[in-house]
Nucleic acid binder design. Structure first.
Lengths: 362, 362
DNA sequence: CTGTTAGCGCCTTCAC
DNA sequence: GTGAAGGCGCTAACAG
């Protein structure tokens, strides 16, 4: 087996017990018959080295299996080329693509990303921030549904740029990229209105106040635009910790209020609502039209497939990372609002005839 | 605003432009009137320091907002307390819990995890390994469906322990924790047999040869145990890159072979198959029973909910991380096989009467 | 118990 | 162009 470790072992004087690439810049220097500073220059493609010797050095380094040590570099350059990413929980089908977008661009730019979950637990949030601090990350991206004020304050103490996703907030070092909740919600509700619904419910999320407020506002605005009254009975905020469960719990209230359609804060709630409806013999979309938000993968293969508002998640992740890169490059950046798009599938349809004359409950 | 940065600024002599915690061990030493090594000792709770001065030093450090610099520590200790985690793609509902388990234990033990995706692309795989190498991670966990031989070889050059999840392989530094595919598959098929099915299909996965082989083997063994013949017509391996799509594509072959039930390599395939069946007017489970593998979240809320084999994903992640910790502590470890468990839901039922006399197609 | 002295691997003035 | 020297922040002998 011919590995770097072996080759390294042949070169170094002693104590090379298998740990890969103990080859340092000094070893290369010795082998190339130059000083280690020249090696350093050659490896960083500095113009201050004779082209030939540089090539020679690079060849030797290659042969010896030299791999630069970023931690040593970081110590002197004061840059770690790492970013910390905090999510509430990794088990959320909503974040996958965002993380993918972040990681994709980060890797391409030579950055690595530390992934941590906070579970919306203040204790863990503090621990995560502290860990990122000790590791001297160059920047942080927060993809948490809830960002407590104490938390952001602590984050700012890091003294590095922080990009919040779907969570605008004010403060030093704080920037954000978010989906356009308002417009997205309006598209969803308008779709329902256009279908002929006049009694539309909203199933909100108690634990994500900022975005919930915006989506609810979109709901109100669109209702107003259509000349429909805003009935508080039609707006429900179940308070369980499970989105799917909350969707299930919302059905009764919706039915009692006479809703023929419902717009849900997110897809998982919509899916829960749909499951509960089926369980009770309520047909979707015939008896109840449902639209969600996010466009998670499952939305396309549940039955009926879910009409929803698609957030450009991958792009949002990339944007957040790009923003961080810009910030690290000393550029100024503006908060970003990404457009959402309605995806019409099978869970929405015109209300049945009988429902038409029957306006909301009372 | 009272931040660390400010406090640090007050203490240090100059050039503290806001980057958090420029307070070093030396600053603390100066403020406490001791040498920096004493501070180092005090902070690491070394017994070689007077308890009182140690307490005093710690208090001062705390006041000054001192945060240890792990990169400096790493340079001298040769330990970064980081692990690299490679996944094929983050957008796979199967990995979430595993990653969660890894991250959970890692964080608790003071480790941070670098997340990278390979997209099963050799070029990216190499780049990821190289990045981990430059960052001098202490260990690596690979959660990729496919691990090429060239890839593992390269991984081993890192000279750090590597734990493979669901991907046994031989080699130096290579360890593994896997779900018991064989037993899981047998449970799934036995369930179908117990229900009365005599014509059971298998929808395999072309792109994950090792685990597919084991699940297929479990299928064969259970068929044999039940005295049922193994019909190659009933085994299909669609070759698209999408699991859901592959499930869809499998329906025809299954139907042509006369299957009344099918065991699928994973849940997404099962869900695809189910969707296609509905699309064609084939009822599940009345006309076709379906069982999946993995127990991803969606399995419980698709309709009908999916009978499947549950992998203890969170525990598998924890085990993998624990194995790495043991390895890093110099202990010996054995590869681990985690038990799977059948979860019976709505997608399986006895075959209809008419199907009973009708054995497989021919 | 505590201070002094060396590096860890690398980049960066500064002389030559 | 190139080498020597110093230091990033910290730990680890080695003396006292």
């Amino acid at each position: 087996m011919h590995t770097c470790a072996n080759r390294a072992g042949e070169m170094s004087v002693a104590g090379n017990k298998g740990k890969g690439s103990r080859v340092s810049i000094k070893d290369v220097a010795r082998a190339a018959g130059v000083s280690h500073s020249t090696v350093s220059r050659a490896l960083r493609n500095s113009p201050l080295v004779n082209a030939e010797t540089a090539a020679h050095i690079r060849r030797i380094a290659e042969e010896m299996g030299y791999i630069p040590n970023i931690v040593a570099q970081s110590l002197v350059t004061q840059r770690t080329y790492t970013v910390g990413l905090v999510v509430t929980t990794i088990s959320d089908p909503f974040i996958d693509q965002i993380v993918e977008g972040i990681e994709d661009l980060a890797t391409r730019e030579g950055y690595s990303v530390f992934l941590s979950s906070s579970h919306a637990d203040p204790g863990r949030e503090i621990a995560v921030v502290e860990a990122f601090h000790r590791r001297r990350v160059d920047g942080v991206i927060v993809l948490a549904s809830r960002v407590g004020s104490m938390y952001t304050e602590r984050l700012q103490e890091l003294g590095v740029p922080i990009v919040l996703i779907n969570n605008q907030a004010d403060g030093a070092y704080l920037y954000s990229v978010s989906a356009d909740d308002l417009s997205g919600a309006r598209q969803a509700v308008r779709h329902l209105v256009d279908l002929g619904h006049t009694c539309i419910g909203y199933v909100g999320c108690h634990f994500r106040p900022p975005s919930n407020r915006r989506r609810l506002e979109g709901y109100r605005q669109e209702l107003a635009r259509a000349g429909l009254p805003y009935e508080s009975d039609l707006v429900v905020h179940p308070k369980t910790f499970s989105d799917v469960e909350n969707g299930r719990l919302a059905l009764d209230a919706l039915l009692n209020a006479g809703a023929t359609a419902a717009f849900c804060y997110n897809d998982r709630m919509a899916i829960g609502l749909m499951a509960e409806a089926r369980h009770r013999g309520i047909r979707v979309p015939e008896d109840l039209s449902i639209v969600g938000f996010d466009d998670i993968e499952a939305s396309s293969y549940v039955f009926p497939s879910l009409t929803t508002v698609k957030q450009p998640r991958f792009e949002m992740g990339m944007r957040a990372m790009q923003m961080l890169l810009d910030l690290l490059a000393g550029q100024e950046v503006d908060d970003d609002l990404m457009p959402c798009e309605l995806v019409v599938r099978e869970s929405t349809a015109p209300p049945r005839k009988e429902s038409l004359w029957q306006t909301c409950a009372k």
